[in-house]
């Protein structure tokens, strides 16, 4: 109960580990979205805030 209260306090969801999902970790399952993300990041560059 103490752990659950701590998780709730920190907004951390209780996640059930499902090993059948491991196969998706090392493959790109949303290639167009990743491509779009890479193009946008290249166009915008990294935030100047990071150089502070």
């Amino acid at each position: 109960m103490k752990i659950i209260n701590e998780l709730k306090k920190r907004n951390i969801p209780i996640v059930k580990i499902d090993k059948s999902l491991n196969k998706y970790d090392d493959i790109i399952i949303f290639p167009e979205k990743l491509d779009k993300a890479n193009k946008k990041l290249t166009k915008s560059g990294l935030p100047k805030q990071w150089n502070k």
């Binding site: 969801p13 209780i14 996640v15 499902d18 491991n22 998706y24």
Partner: peptide
């Protein structure tokens, strides 16, 4: 956020989630 959410499952590395 105190909103209704679905139960989550995840890969070992927490890179892939399912609900």
């Amino acid at each position: 956020m105190k909103l209704p959410k679905y139960q989550l499952s995840s890969s070992d590395k927490l890179l892939t989630f399912e609900f």
